[in-house]
């Protein structure tokens, strides 16, 4: 993959309330402690694919660049591998606040239409709600773009390879206490959705 044309930060509209919002997020409490040393960005194994580096994202949060942060590809590409947080001399939990930013971006419709991650989060959560455990083939099916013939072909090849090695479990997982899972979801997901719709 060719390295992306890295973007410069141009701050036009500053929304200081965004900085405060991030400071209230888990992982964002000490975001103002960042000294812009760049260790996170130098360590990030997925930096090559991001539009802004983790260090730039933090600076943009400092500057209150809400829209640019929430519509960046960075928050979706972070793989939560914790290299950055392990090395950060200021002890900032970068993957944790990236997760929280995803949450805000999903809720406020910031993800672009071709960004598959919100759908991934939703489908993953739905499957766990349904079975209590992951059902890998179903997740793949939910996420596949069925109109893309090349993708269908590649997936068929992969599925065959996995099936030959006994790695495709077609039967969905079963739990006897599935009612527990339903209750957890009712308690938390529905309540949250009710609050959001108010």
């Amino acid at each position: 993959m060719k390295p992306k044309q890295f973007q410069k930060i141009v701050s036009e509209v500053r929304d200081q309330s965004f900085t405060e919002e991030v400071q209230k997020l888990r992982g964002g409490e000490n975001i103002l402690d960042c000294i812009q040393c760049g260790v996170c960005s130098g360590s990030c194994p997925a930096r090559f694919a991001m539009d802004f580096s983790p260090m730039q994202i933090i600076k943009m949060i400092h500057l209150g660049m809400r829209d640019q942060v929430l519509s960046s590809s960075t928050i979706w590409i972070c793989a939560s591998c914790y290299t950055c947080a392990t090395r950060c001399p200021r002890g900032i939990d970068i993957p944790m606040f990236m997760s929280a930013l995803k949450n805000i971006a999903i809720k406020n419709g910031f993800a672009s239409d071709d960004e598959i991650k919100p759908k991934f989060h939703k489908s993953f959560t739905e499957i766990i709600r349904k079975y209590g455990r992951m059902h890998e083939p179903e997740l793949k099916m939910k996420l596949m773009r069925k109109s893309d013939l090349r993708e269908l072909y590649q997936n068929a090849v992969l599925a065959f390879r996995l099936w030959r090695k006994g790695k495709v479990k077609l039967l969905a997982p079963r739990m006897d206490q599935l009612s527990h899972i339903s209750e957890i979801f009712e308690d938390l997901l529905e309540k949250q959705e009710e609050e959001a719709s108010k």
Partner: peptide
């Protein structure tokens, strides 16, 4: 049940 996932469910709803 599912461990809770690193990010997939967490980013959706941390308490869940």
């Amino acid at each position: 049940n599912c461990c809770g996932s690193i990010d997939a469910i967490y980013a959706h709803n941390p308490v869940l």
